[in-house]
């Protein structure tokens, strides 16, 4: 019975992936991608990878989906031109060849894995007690492979700098994206007032639970960033100026504290990012606490995009790109019938 369910879900996943690739309309493709992410997180639940499932649902489906929707909004003007274009037979043949060979190599790699596959899981589980955390994923991410997590945080900050560097000179130091305006009595504003208190509690709970249960700073940061975006899209608060000091301090605090803890480890424990005996849990908590603001700010600002107006521009309702479909206020008289 469960085998049939797994098979159906796997086939559905393949079909959705194909549908997402084949769809000509960018919006349809993104919708397919989001559903694909949610379905994939169900597959991770079935494989007992709850941490991965949470991350896939939050970042793969949610955050990436929102980023792609923003891109669709920006590309809408050029989409008709892109439709009429047809690439030459040579390009198509090359694309087919390339994707088939990548798929073949990937399939060969998976099929030739030794049985049982090589794993470090027993060692990680054996030494988990030394880290003081109960969730093996958190143990791996912040103790055994802390360097990877540090580099991840640094990559996110660099990505944000890359997005910011797309800003025209005259808007440097300004605010990203359009100023959203929504009907103050509308449902979006209502949602933006009701949901954030719940979302903040859930986000912080996920953050704290990450030590011993599935969860952690990434999933938590995505939820907190989503709450912030909701408040912005309802026009209840503006996007921050990118030259504000607290903002920049919040963005770099995570990697800086992480590196400081690493150097402390080199001095006290004899290895970069080594934790002195008995100090692993407090160090991990310090790093996670410092990474949380970095991740929330970076994820939300990545969604906001490059600075597009000077810091004190007046609100311009109607100019929305991230969710042009939902945040524009109703035209006068449009609500009454």
């Amino acid at each position: 019975m469960t085998a049939i369910v797994s098979l159906v879900v796997a086939l559905l996943l393949l079909w959705l992936a194909l549908w997402t690739v084949v769809a000509r309309d960018a919006f349809v493709a993104v919708a397919g991608f989001v559903v694909y992410g949610l379905l994939l997180s169900l597959v991770w639940v079935r494989l007992a990878g709850i941490d991965v499932a949470l991350t896939e649902a939050a970042i793969g489906g949610g955050l990436t989906g929102a980023l792609l929707l923003g891109a669709v909004g920006r590309l809408r003007g050029t989409e008709a031109a892109a439709w009429s274009e047809r690439s030459g037979a040579c390009t198509r043949a090359f694309a087919v060849l390339l994707s088939v060979s990548v798929a073949t190599v990937l399939a060969l790699c998976v099929l030739t894995l030794p049985e049982p596959p090589p794993t470090l899981a027993p060692q990680a589980a054996e030494n988990l007690a030394a880290t003081g955390v109960g969730n093996p994923i958190t143990g791996v991410l912040l103790a055994f492979r802390a360097l990877d997590t540090l580099l991840e945080a640094v990559v996110l900050v660099i990505a944000l700098i890359g997005v910011w560097s797309l800003a025209p000179d005259r808007f440097w130091g300004g605010r990203p994206g359009p100023r959203y305006g929504a009907d103050p009595d509308g449902i979006l504003t209502y949602l933006a007032r009701v949901l954030p208190p719940i979302g903040i509690v859930v986000g912080l709970y996920l953050f704290w639970a990450g030590a011993d249960h599935p969860g952690g700073k990434f999933q938590s940061a995505t939820i907190l960033a989503a709450m912030w975006m909701l408040v912005q899209m309802a026009g209840l608060s503006d996007a921050p100026r990118i030259d504000s000091r607290w903002l920049r301090a919040g963005i770099v605090v995570g990697p800086l504290v992480f590196v400081a803890v690493g150097v402390l480890g080199a001095w006290q424990a004899g290895a970069f990012l080594g934790y002195p005996d008995g100090w692993a849990k407090p160090m991990i908590v310090v790093i996670e606490l410092a990474l949380l603001p970095t991740l929330v700010l970076v994820l939300a600002l990545l969604l906001n995009g490059a600075p597009a107006r000077s810091a004190d521009s007046p609100p311009a309702p109607g100019e929305t790109s991230l969710s042009a479909r939902s945040t524009r206020p109703m035209p006068a008289g449009g609500t009454r019938q």
């Binding site: 449902i187 949602l191 479909r325």
Partner: peptide, 19 residues
Amino acid sequence: LSSGAVSQLIARSVRRREC
């Protein structure tokens, strides 16, 4: 909460496009 709010938003944007 979310499905109620989202369906209102979708209906509203459809209505706006019709207008």
